[in-house]
Design a protein around this nucleic acid. Structure first.
Lengths: 341, 341
DNA sequence: TTGTATGCGTTATCAA
DNA sequence: TTGATAACGCATACAA
């Protein structure tokens, strides 16, 4: 593939009978260069369609202006919203995002981390996969002092900054709400696998039960991958229970909705027979009937925050060193799926 | 920020008392270098954690191994699925994706194109925004012979390759199905703005009407931005109509569902009073009651295809020059929202 | 099969 | 205020 030759600072310099040094300075708006020469240089650059060669620049400066993002899956409403937020901030700041999906598998996550490392990203934003049992693959970033922020699916084990909701409190709120509505036999749909986000939600669920002297029963905690299909599966398990639950708190909306659909097919009424609360405030929560009570999770803001924290750290304007955890605001959105009175 | 010094081919060469040329060759598995030396070099490289400096490499080779993606919005189910498909192919092939959102605005789309150009992407994948009235901002890619593929929201005006559904046929199928179900007064919800994808769908709608000698009425074509909220808006317009329609064909599922929700609130029954068909096969289509009949749009496959076409072109294994348009298979998924018999 | 030398387009140091 | 020049790390033409 034959491309025309690109304009370089040499071309500009020759054309204006200046040195490349001056041209380079003018292009980065160095105050040291004469206003008039600067003007001439910039005008010529524009008229000739000059564009800086980022590779030369990066090679020289050892920075890439690139941020890596590792996520389990891109195609969920929540995650794509987060990425949208990140992209908007990054773009504005002149950073590029490179995204890699770990498909919830540790091996792929290691690969992704490897790719990011090889690409010499300036910083990294990571949401962990179900399969992640250790964080060794992120050590290399620590060594090279490449900043890394975990968001959503985080790990407080790590020395990195985390951006999260107060998952324990959110789960507590959700469960407490169910209890307030009269529920006493409450199922919790979760994803386990040792990810602390789900441990925290489980803990919040337990705390609420404890506060109201409701016995915690292991068999009411149902694990799934939280897809809509997994919700169908969970519904079957619920239908098979000796004592039918009167409340469900699901760790996301997809599984809650999948579960509702299947239970409704089996004649269960929401919220009369079972009151249900989800998590995320996914659009499907206002499509299902009755509308799903859920925890509002500000994905776009989380993406914006993660990106801006990272970038301001990279620019040295604000270090992450001190910031262990940033907690975003959540909110219980009460809708018909759980409202009995 | 102080980083440790990276290992380069100079370090490897010195350490093994070889020239950097040999090391460079060995690292790219050049058959010309001695098997044993190659082995020594590669082993040392691995043990020292050598990683190629892509900037130096790109600077030298004038290729970036980066593909730019410009889309209106990332946070829709369809689009995030497409991106997921692209990412999976690109990642496997050693390409990075950089993504930019045009927010449906021409100005932002021009910016995005500019950014991609400045970043010297090897190729570009683009889905056009509502606001796009001309394609001048893509001329620069043509000039530099940077391959560009439009997908989903395409433009046959351009000299670039398009990857699409047969939108006219799909719309025809959808409308014909409604007619088969007895509909005679069929509303079409669309987004206009001159994007040909919507023109084609409108055309398909008209063709189906024509085939069955049903008069086309301008006032039954309702424009919206196709969000769920816009569906509410459309519903109001429908409720205000003198003669109530008995069928709706919407250009996407979100608007269809938003419309259904509002109409149901007003006592309209689906499919008895109105039969409705959407487009995309978004997850909400199987959450709404009754489940929404829709056109299955293979987003993931479209993403995979777009990326693999571009990459194989870049690798020279298969040129895009000859390929004007690639049409993906679609399928009408008949569900309860339109099924009267 | 290996080595030498050069250039890719910048930035930045040191001089002028 | 401007210029000359040396890196940055790699790939490759040409020599050996």
């Amino acid at each position: 593939m034959m491309r025309e030759k690109d304009i370089t600072i040499y071309d500009l310099a020759k054309s204006l009978k200046l040195s490349i040094a001056t041209v380079s300075r003018a292009l980065k708006d160095d105050p040291v260069v004469n206003k008039k020469t600067k003007k001439r240089i910039i005008e010529l650059a524009e008229s000739l369609g000059y564009r800086t060669n980022h590779f030369a620049k990066n090679l020289r400066t050892q920075k890439t202006n690139t941020i890596g993002v590792i996520i389990p899956r891109l195609n969920s409403y929540f995650m794509s919203t987060v990425i949208a937020g990140m992209e908007s901030i990054a773009n504005r700041a002149g950073y590029n995002l490179i995204i890699s999906q770990s498909a919830e598998a540790l091996e792929k996550e290691i690969d992704s981390a490897q790719t990011m490392f090889k690409n010499r990203v300036d910083g990294l934003l990571v949401s962990l996969g179900y399969g992640t049992t250790n964080l060794n693959h992120f050590d290399q970033f620590l060594h090279k002092k490449i900043p890394l922020i975990f968001f959503d699916r985080t790990s407080s084990q790590s020395p990195f900054t985390n951006i999260v909701l107060d998952n324990e409190k959110a789960a507590f709120d959700a469960t407490q709400h169910l209890i307030d509505q009269g529920c006493r036999q409450i199922v919790h749909i979760t994803a386990d696998t040792g990810l602390e986000i789900y441990r925290h939600r489980l803990q919040g669920y337990q705390n609420a039960l404890a506060k109201h002297q409701i016995e915690f029963k292991e068999e009411l905690v149902l694990e799934a991958n939280l897809s809509m299909e997994s919700g169908h599966e969970i519904a079957k398990r619920i239908l098979a229970m000796r004592k039918r639950p009167d409340g469900i708190f699901a760790a996301n909306d997809s599984s809650a909705v999948g579960c509702m659909i299947k239970l409704k097919e089996n004649g269960i009424k929401f919220p009369e027979d079972i009151a249900i609360v989800g998590f995320n405030n996914d659009p499907i929560s206002i499509v299902i009937e009755p509308n799903l009570t859920t925890i509002n999770y500000p994905g776009y803001e989380m993406g914006e925050l993660a990106a801006s924290q990272l970038i301001s750290h990279l620019r040295g304007s604000h270090s992450l060193q001190m910031t262990k955890t940033i907690v975003l605001h959540h909110e219980l959105l009460v809708r018909q799926s759980s409202l009995r009175k």
